[in-house]
Computed example of a mutant assay.
Amino acid sequence: MTQRTAWLNGEYLPLAEAKVPVLDRGFLFADGVYEVTAVLDGRLVDSAAHLARLERSAGAIGIPLPVDAAGIAAVERELIARDSITRGLIYLQLTRGGTDDRDFLPRAGMRPTLLMFTQARDFLANPAVEAGMSVISWPELRWTRRDIKSVALLGQVMAKQAAAAAGAQEAWLVEDGFVTEGASSNAMIVDEAGTLVTRSLSNALLHGCTRAAVLALAAQYGVPVAERAFTIAEALAAREAMITSASSFVLPVTRIDGQVIADGRPGPITRRLRELYIAAARA
């Protein structure tokens, strides 16, 4: 892909030419939300779920959508076509907008800023599919409304930096002794009984679209599911561990804090759920 396209407030233009005012509240206050939707075989994956979550996040902080869900999906498909994306992502960011002087209290009637652009990425070729990935445990430093997909991602950035410094690819965030989620993913384990375990939905974690799809597939294909909190110690004693996200689908976790899980290889349930998810996305 030689040129990337952005859609900004109703206009298609080269990504390098897309500009947002310095006084935009997304820049000054992280006053905004975002979504990331996967593209596989040139088609959006779990689009309806991502758009529903966008509406929920925007509603939670009182930002009206300047374009309805159907209109957003149409723009995303046009961006895929313009940038010839076969595998990759669509990034969407919605802020409260504003060009007034800096003030914590937003002026009524501000025009929101809505931005979308593509990213080419071959996530099917991820080496972690066969090798597994390493995660570290990291203190939960974020605010309490993690169910809102906020653009305020400093806590996640710090966790990702710590993971990279430790030679790992992800961090599992721990609060009151229990894993909430990954820095950019939902966390799951397969316990000794063969049950797929992941934390139940609440304000403590993002309501992952891929998470929901994987849990539905697990139930459909006879894998028991338990939605409850688990500890790092329980994860280390598990048969398998994995993450789910729009940018990775399902990936096996084989090490936590340098300690090997089970035999250190991706497990059969993780492999099967990844296969099922990709097949469902392509269908």
Score class of each variant (00 low, 15 high):
1 M>V: 14
2 T>G: 14
6 A>C: 09
12 Y>E: 05
12 Y>Q: 03
13 L>R: 15
13 L>A: 12
15 L>A: 13
16 A>Q: 13
17 E>L: 10
21 P>E: 08
23 L>R: 14
23 L>A: 14
28 L>Y: 07
28 L>T: 14
34 Y>M: 06
36 V>Q: 08
38 A>K: 06
41 D>W: 06
42 G>C: 13
42 G>T: 09
43 R>C: 12
44 L>S: 07
44 L>V: 09
44 L>P: 01
46 D>L: 14
50 H>Q: 03
51 L>C: 07
51 L>K: 01
53 R>T: 00
54 L>A: 06
56 R>M: 12
59 G>N: 09
60 A>L: 12
61 I>H: 06
65 L>I: 03
65 L>N: 07
71 G>S: 07
72 I>W: 01
72 I>P: 01
73 A>C: 09
73 A>D: 13
74 A>E: 14
75 V>L: 08
78 E>C: 00
78 E>L: 07
79 L>K: 02
84 S>M: 11
85 I>E: 04
86 T>N: 15
88 G>W: 01
88 G>R: 03
90 I>F: 02
92 L>N: 01
93 Q>N: 09
95 T>H: 00
95 T>M: 02
98 G>L: 02
101 D>T: 15
103 D>S: 15
105 L>Q: 14
110 M>A: 11
110 M>V: 13
114 L>W: 01
114 L>P: 01
115 L>D: 06
116 M>N: 05
117 F>W: 12
120 A>W: 09
126 N>S: 13
127 P>K: 03
128 A>T: 13
129 V>A: 08
130 E>V: 07
133 M>H: 02
135 V>Y: 02
136 I>K: 01
137 S>G: 10
138 W>C: 05
141 L>Q: 14
146 R>P: 02
149 K>N: 08
149 K>E: 05
150 S>H: 10
152 A>D: 12
152 A>Y: 11
164 A>T: 13
165 A>E: 12
168 A>Q: 05
168 A>G: 01
169 Q>T: 08
171 A>W: 00
173 L>Q: 06
173 L>D: 00
175 E>R: 15
176 D>T: 09
177 G>K: 07
178 F>Y: 15
180 T>M: 08
181 E>G: 06
185 S>I: 04
188 M>W: 07
190 V>K: 02
194 G>M: 07
194 G>S: 11
194 G>E: 10
195 T>M: 10
196 L>H: 07
200 S>Y: 12
202 S>F: 10
203 N>Q: 15
207 H>E: 13
208 G>T: 02
208 G>P: 01
208 G>V: 00
209 C>T: 14
212 A>L: 10
213 A>K: 11
215 L>H: 03
218 A>T: 09
219 A>P: 04
219 A>E: 15
220 Q>S: 15
220 Q>A: 15
220 Q>N: 13
221 Y>L: 10
224 P>N: 04
224 P>C: 00
225 V>T: 05
227 E>L: 10
228 R>Q: 05
232 I>T: 08
232 I>M: 11
232 I>C: 03
233 A>D: 15
236 L>D: 05
236 L>I: 10
236 L>Y: 05
238 A>G: 03
242 M>Q: 03
242 M>R: 06
244 T>M: 08
245 S>K: 01
247 S>G: 13
248 S>E: 09
249 F>I: 12
250 V>M: 05
252 P>I: 05
255 R>F: 02
261 I>M: 03
263 D>S: 06
263 D>Y: 02
268 P>F: 11
270 T>S: 13
274 R>Q: 06
278 I>D: 06
280 A>L: 09
282 R>T: 12
